[in-house]
Amino acid sequence: MEWTDERFKVYQQLMKEIQAVDFVLVELNLYLDTHPNDQQAVEQYNDYVRQSAALKSRFQSMFGPLYGFGNSYTTCPWSWKEAPWPWQV
C-alpha cells in the first residue's frame, strides 16, 4: 500500500483522535481511582472505551496493527515493524 498525502492525512487525523480519546480515558481512570462510585464518570468512561475500541479497529482495518505482542490482529505479510513509526508521523 503506497503512501499518498491524502492517506497520510487520514492516518494522522485518526491517530490524533485515538490519542485524544485515550487521554480522556487516562484522566477518567485516575479520577475514578479516588471516586469509585461516581456513576456519571463510570458511564462516561465506558462510552470512551467503546469509542476508543471503534477508532482503533477502524485504524487497524486501514493501516494495519497498532500494537504488537498479541494486542492487535496482524496483516499478512507481517507488518508490525513497518514504517511509519510514531516519531515519523
Binding site: 485524544a20 487521554f23 480522556v24 484522566e27 456519571q40
Partner: peptide
Amino acid sequence: FQPYGMPQFPPMEAL
C-alpha cells in the same frame, strides 16, 4: 478532594 461533576474539556481540547 475533587468535587463530582466538574465541567470538562472536549477530548481534543483536553489533549
